[in-house]
Design a protein around this nucleic acid. Sequence first.
DNA 1: GATGAATGAGGCTTCATTCAT
DNA 2: CATGAATGAAGCCTCATTCAT
Lengths: 191, 191, 191, 191
Amino acid sequence: MKTSDKRRDIMQAALELIAEQGFHRAPMAEIAEKAGVAAGTIYRYFESKDVLITKLHRELEDKIMAVLQEGYPSGRPLRERFLYLIRELLRYFITNPLHFRYMEQYFNSPYGISMHRDRLLGKSGNQDILMDIFDQGIEQQVLKEFPKAVLFSLAFGPMIFLMRDHIFDFIVLDEALIKQITEACWDAIKR
Amino acid sequence: MKTSDKRRDIMQAALELIAEQGFHRAPMAEIAEKAGVAAGTIYRYFESKDVLITKLHRELEDKIMAVLQEGYPSGRPLRERFLYLIRELLRYFITNPLHFRYMEQYFNSPYGISMHRDRLLGKSGNQDILMDIFDQGIEQQVLKEFPKAVLFSLAFGPMIFLMRDHIFDFIVLDEALIKQITEACWDAIKR
Amino acid sequence: MKTSDKRRDIMQAALELIAEQGFHRAPMAEIAEKAGVAAGTIYRYFESKDVLITKLHRELEDKIMAVLQEGYPSGRPLRERFLYLIRELLRYFITNPLHFRYMEQYFNSPYGISMHRDRLLGKSGNQDILMDIFDQGIEQQVLKEFPKAVLFSLAFGPMIFLMRDHIFDFIVLDEALIKQITEACWDAIKR
Amino acid sequence: MKTSDKRRDIMQAALELIAEQGFHRAPMAEIAEKAGVAAGTIYRYFESKDVLITKLHRELEDKIMAVLQEGYPSGRPLRERFLYLIRELLRYFITNPLHFRYMEQYFNSPYGISMHRDRLLGKSGNQDILMDIFDQGIEQQVLKEFPKAVLFSLAFGPMIFLMRDHIFDFIVLDEALIKQITEACWDAIKR
DNA sequence: GATGAATGAGGCTTCATTCAT
DNA sequence: CATGAATGAAGCCTCATTCAT
């Protein structure tokens, strides 16, 4: 394969450790051990811990985006597309809790700030389906006339909180609840 | 003075450093320097960094609770009380951005988990005005029939996100926008 | 009184803490607290922790010597005087276990070396009843012809060990056992 | 080499420093310097200072036990075996004074207490030749009918004291003196 | 390429001592 | 005389990173 197995193993080990313990309780030595490589080896694939963290984030983001785009109902009404996005993201994170924990850590760290800035300014590189929905929704007067950051917060804020609660077993997100929640999010942004 | 100046200075320095840099980038030595005291001095006032962090959180929480309760429209309808809470909290954090950043750090840390658990289980000690609103709202069939964790997420999640955006200048939360946002949050939870 | 109460309190507090915790786990601040004085006050009575430790040792030693001399059967045979000394010392330490623990700490520390040297060289200032017994015992050919350090070790070594065992409840030193032990010590040194 | 040189160097440095200065005056930094390694390196070989201290003790104990067992006259009478043990131990410590000083420090520390307890209760793991002698000696009515702790004290107490005196040059333990001393110890415990 | 032992800066905390009140 | 808050050196330990093999 293009990217070597070692590279994969390191990223996986880093993902698990960081998701479970946080950045600063995930020593490179432990990541190496978990990955089954020597500590020094990590530095053949990643210049520094910072770079590893950033690359890992980018990879997770790409993967998530890919999943969201897979069955994305492009031609369907805004509401349906919105509900799809939130629902699938919740499902993805429920299936991959470590990915959620990692993204959360990343978001709540100096790294996360600039990433978020880029996204809101449309510089994220990826075409951003969610932002597209907001653009269109405002234009078509289906959504409240909010800045995109506000729409984003109304749509995503609850989801992040709920995932936390789900992971810590404060709540059980079953399909019925997910449906209701996504609709509640829609209620918040729809005109 | 009632509580010594030094204690205040230390808490203020810790607040600023932790709010701006996070727990791990706020070494005791730096807190001490910023507070204008020797490193050892901190330990006359706080047993450990953990205790300092926890006490600081408690103080901020108390202060915020006090502010929220000050003009709280106890006798008024649920909706009005809800809007009041979200609005005043936003205002408070806009006025005291460091407090917001600190609370956020705390929330996204092992400390925050158990605190949140207690809150959802009603063990928070303080009477919890927000949870009361949820209880009553469900009973009176004004709110959607969600677990409290869900209502909490729908109400608070967006606010946290927005505050972040505001602090990093991705958005400007003026009074008009605050009004609209709080109403959008209400839309999300109202039946 | 001649020596102020504070001085007494400090020494008593130091005795207790050091006996129980050892020198380095007996912070001056804690000694002060236990003594009911301010930390700085200690330094009015003792130049430094070292001086406090040394003075305390000297005081204990004086006290013990006084006790031993009180009923000392000067005119009686060597054996009787020897048995008396060992027995009374054991009794004293059983009654005052903190004194024993303190003396032990002191003995097993850099302080203890020079003290011991002085004693063996007869420079201890105090007239030394035990050493006198040894001198006479050798002269009268009642004791084995050992250097005094050897006689001292044969007489005292077991006692120190036994006191430790007694304090830690590995053994119970009752009167019958004390009698037998002192006689065993005599057996070791008598010709 | 079997065990790395660094590990050896660290243990040797620790042995020397602790034997000469005691635990508290043997900072890890100094041990590292004396061993010719960086401070952090110690922690590759020993989890903590406590572990280093304990491992070092165990190694010394094993070594001493091995020496004592080497020429041990198993089949010979009690008295001979007893004299052998005390004599060889004295010789060993005279040859390896740092080992003695270290063991002494260890014995006079919280570590030493529980070790000693285990020994007296026969839980020491190693078969304990000395305790065996005591058991048999009591049974065969060769020794005084003392608790083992007492026999132990009568046999070991003097030796410890004498070694101290020897190391500090208060006395010279030559072969003639050693012979006489071991016999005096026997006198103390024999019926 | 891979290893993993070694490094040493930096983090938290303790405590003997000082000094302004 | 007495206070006790303040100091800061020094102790133990962690961990990102390097480099000889």
